[in-house]
């Protein structure tokens, strides 16, 4: 059964990581719904958030393959219930249209949109929320004419209590406590 998952990939901030992560999904024929990359709360640790649809079995295999990438620190796969997430969308619409009737009012009141720029020619509306809410606003504005539309990838915060830095600490002590006399291949 395909299901939506949000992957949070924590890695060292090295060139090429994004490539190494996405080829794992490509090889498994998993489509990327959205992808964003940013810093994380831990300085020097990079976070890639990827939304995919796949099966529970495959997502586990993919997580392990991603964790196998040397510069990857930790990967989480969460269902939508396990995270707080948002996306942001920007709409550019003709001012003339917006000013007819109570459209602006509806955008702000019913859809929780926000005007970020207003000129005599156009307005830019920002909407933050879940994808379906954004699509709802898109459908509404479409009827009146849209000049540009763009939606960001998902960003997510996990509801789990254990945070990345405690994982990092565990990994660190595990490695340091067991530096072997000799590596396996010597």
């Amino acid at each position: 059964m395909n299901q939506e998952y949000t992957l949070s990939v924590f890695s060292e901030d090295h060139i090429g990581i994004l490539n190494q992560i996405t080829i794992i999904l490509t090889r498994r024929q998993i489509n990327i719904d959205s992808i964003t990359a940013s810093e994380s709360a831990v300085r020097g640790v990079h976070l890639i958030t990827i939304v995919v649809r796949t099966t529970p079995e495959l997502i586990q295999k993919v997580v392990r393959q991603m964790e196998k990438v040397i510069d990857v620190l930790k990967v989480f796969a969460h269902t939508s219930e396990e995270i707080v997430y948002q996306e942001i969308a920007l709409f550019k619409v003709p001012t003339k249209v917006m000013m007819s009737g109570n459209i602006v009012d509806q955008v702000v009141r019913n859809h929780n949109g926000r005007l970020v720029e207003v000129t005599p020619e156009y307005m830019v509306i920002e909407k933050t929320g879940h994808k379906d809410e954004i699509i709802e606003l898109l459908r509404f504005l479409e009827k009146h004419g849209i000049l540009q539309f763009v939606r960001s990838g998902r960003i997510a915060i996990t509801r789990q209590v254990k945070e990345l830095h405690s994982y990092l600490k565990e990994m660190d002590t595990a490695t340091r406590s067991k530096i072997p006399e000799e590596s396996i291949y010597n």
Binding site: E12, I70, D71, L73, M171, D172, A174, T175, K178, I179
Partner: peptide
């Protein structure tokens, strides 16, 4: 090298 933060080959 005997330590890389993101890579732990010695699993307990």
């Amino acid at each position: 090298c005997d330590y890389i933060r993101s890579y732990n080959p010695h699993i307990p």
